[in-house]
Design a binder for these strands. Structure first.
Lengths: 211, 211
DNA sequence: CAGATACAGACCGGCGGTCTGTATTATTTT
DNA sequence: AAAATAATACAGACCGCCGGTCTGTATCTG
């Protein structure tokens, strides 16, 4: 095959395959040969579209991040919701996305493969917190649905806890552990006047642990 | 040279050199050849003492962890302190250690080199929380110096926040940011009846940022 | 028909890791 | 106590594989 008319499909195939393999065996243990075999492409094809192996995973992570950011931006700019409602929607949808495997299904590899846990941290503290969660927190304070003295800190803590502590992807957990953690998290946010995790999501997280 | 009478010195030399190199250029970019050159040993010598390159860094991280654990165990088993006082001493000393560079001076590389951020997380959630912080929390609940319904969760959250969010090593922060984060952290713990960060430590952390 | 594009695949340097060899020390045997 | 044997602490040649490069080629575009 040569001079494919739709090279963008090739790029997507590389990205899809790579993210699957990274998820299955981790970044380091996935070799270029694995990607070549799985895509039925050649080394030349892959290096035609990507400058390096690292460029592939960065593209993968970016794709995830963009989907997340788009969702967060949409909720942030939605009309007719209180700040607390928006925040709830954000956490709800974000968790949903990671469970349904639609978009964040490779999040585990970001964690398991620590190189991108750092990227994850940066994206949480450098983008998600200040650009999406913080404005919504402020909105909630303004409309009275949230009470908080230090929204900057709160936005960071919420995201850190939700993503790095609560998320069962990090470590094997029993459904019971997940439920008590969720309860603790809700108890924490309740002092600021809102609650983020409802029964649905908690069930989904608990279910996720069983697999 | 052959049949050295003090092989333990060789092991320490490898560990010292490796941790320095990992700190300087990161784990991936440090090759075995670098370690060989810097230690003036041979590949055979290194592989005689360590099974793999990864085993070297695991040993390095372990050495750090053991110093921490020893301190935590000592405080945990000390007599004549309330649970809250012990907890305060634990966080105080742990932060001290990481600043004075005596023992945790290589912590930055653990973070910068993400492979070991995961190890760090595991050590926090798998060892520090259940073995040291949790018993002390329970002690505090028993002696009335701490009020908490869910000590398991609280122990994890305290450690995650202190190590991954509060610690200025993670990201460039202004002294002001550090102070407000410390205030937020203290406000968080105050609802459980104790406070962990006093002026001394906050000053030390703020000072740390300036360097 | 002259690039430019989209691959294919041989090739390469260096990396982590193995394997064999050797000098020295420790232990057992006689 | 001497000799034989085993175990230790290295040394360094060697290997397979991995990420990355380079050249070649078929197809498309202008």
């Amino acid at each position: 095959m040569a001079r494919n008319k739709h090279p963008e499909q090739t790029v997507q195939r590389i990205l899809d395959t790579a993210s699957r393999l990274f998820l299955e065996r981790g970044y380091d243990k996935t070799t270029l040969q694995d990607i070549i075999d799985a895509t039925h492409l050649s080394k030349g094809a892959i290096y035609h579209h990507f400058a390096s192996k690292e460029a592939i995973i960065i593209a993968v992570v970016d794709r995830v991040g963009e989907a997340q950011s788009a969702m967060l931006a949409e909720v942030r700019d939605r009309k007719g919701l209180t700040g607390a409602e928006k925040l709830r929607e954000m956490f709800r949808t974000s968790l949903r996305m990671s469970f349904q495997g639609k978009i964040l299904h490779m999040l585990p590899f970001i964690i398991e493969n620590p190189k991108f846990m750092t990227l994850q941290m940066q994206s949480i503290l450098g983008e998600a917190a200040p650009d999406y969660v913080l404005p919504v927190l402020r909105e909630g304070i303004a409309d009275g649905s949230i009470q908080a003295d230090h929204p900057e800190e709160l936005s960071e803590v919420l995201l850190i806890l939700a993503n790095l502590w609560l998320h069962p992807i990090f470590r094997p957990s029993t459904p019971e552990q997940v439920r008590t953690r969720c309860a603790f998290f809700n108890q924490f946010t309740r002092q600021y006047g809102f609650e983020l995790l409802d029964g649905d999501i908690i069930d989904a997280m608990a279910e996720f642990c069983r697999t």
